[in-house]
Structure formats: structure tokens, C-alpha cells
């Protein structure tokens, strides 16, 4: 893990507290998410307390605190998808894989995230698994789709 400290030292030699957000972004790029260990290391490096870093990080939706799953599901809850029953799909999805948005399944298969509009409102409700768009979702279709991702 001290390799993290090394790269921090390289990219942020100033060690300034104002670098917190770029540092968090950098760590997320490197490791895919912000782990509690990473927060501890950043805390040491920038001399900011873990709680404060966590507070700042949780304020922005861009940061994740769980390791990404093998497949990332983004479920749309934008206006069009909402009207077409997006939240139903979300509930069904949650039941199916057993996790809430913002987390990763225990077996590391999926992580789940909700987004505001995927830009294809005409075929709502939609979700994206990795880079594939799945449209006009229904509860029945959902299972089938998921079974394609191991």
C-alpha cells in the first residue's frame, strides 16, 4: 500500500491540503475506489483527519467506497425512465442481486449505481451493464440479461 504513498509523492509533491479532491480522484483512478486504507494513507500524507476526508469524499457522488464488481450496472432513474417505471426495475434488481445502490455484491460479480439519464430516453426504462445498453426493461427481462454476465 505504501506504493500509493509513493505515487502521491510523485503526483502531488506540494503536499497541500487543497489537493484533497485531485488526490482522491487520482486514488480512485488507480484503485477503482476509495478504500479505508487509502483514506488512512491520504490522511497521513496530507495531514487531514480520516473523518474529514471521508466527509468530503462522501459529499461528491463521483467517489466510490467499494471495490468495483466484475460488471458495473448503472440503472437510470431519469425523468423518462422514472415515468416508465425505472424505480420498479431498481427494486427488482436490488432483490435480484441483493445490494443497494453504491455497493458491490459479496461475490464481486456486480456493483450497482443509479444515474440520472443515460441519453436514450426514447427506449426507457434503460440500464447499462458495463458498456451495453439494455432497453425497454421489464422485470422478466432483467433476469435473463443478468445471466449473461458472470
Amino acid at each position: 500500500m505504501s506504493s500509493l504513498l509513493n505515487t502521491l509523492g510523485k503526483h502531488f509533491p506540494e503536499c497541500s491540503k487543497g489537493d484533497l479532491i485531485p488526490v482522491l480522484q487520482h486514488v480512485q483512478d488507480q484503485e477503482g475506489y476509495i478504500s479505508s486504507n487509502a483514506i488512512r494513507e491520504i490522511s497521513e500524507y496530507l495531514n487531514i483527519s480520516c473523518s474529514t476526508i471521508y466527509g468530503v469524499a462522501t459529499f461528491y457522488s463521483q467517489f466510490k467506497f467499494n471495490p468495483p464488481g466484475r460488471h458495473s450496472i448503472k440503472i437510470c432513474l431519469g425523468t423518462a425512465c422514472h415515468v416508465q417505471g425505472g424505480d420498479f426495475i431498481l427494486s427488482a434488481l436490488q432483490m435480484e442481486i441483493g445490494i443497494a445502490p453504491g455497493s458491490t455484491t459479496e461475490d464481486g460479480r456486480f456493483d450497482l449505481e443509479r444515474v440520472a439519464c443515460l441519453g436514450c430516453c426514447a427506449i426507457a426504462p434503460v440500464m447499462m451493464v458495463d458498456n451495453d445498453i439494455h432497453s425497454r426493461l421489464s422485470v422478466i427481462k432483467l433476469r435473463q440479461i443478468l445471466s449473461n454476465y458472470e
Partner: peptide, 28 residues
């Protein structure tokens, strides 16, 4: 300057807390 407490999360879910909900002792 103990740095134990912070506002975590945002909007409606904002609460006072520590990193990853660790205990006060763990948070120093």
C-alpha cells in the same frame, strides 16, 4: 484539532460521523 467528527454523506442523508462509520475510539 482532534479531527474525529465530520459531516458525512450529502443532502437528506447528511449526518455527523466518522470515516466508514468507525467507532469514536478507532477514529482517534
Amino acid at each position: 484539532y482532534s479531527g474525529v467528527l465530520a459531516f458525512v454523506q450529502r443532502g437528506n442523508s447528511t449526518l455527523v460521523g466518522t470515516a466508514f462509520g468507525e467507532s469514536q475510539i478507532e477514529a482517534g
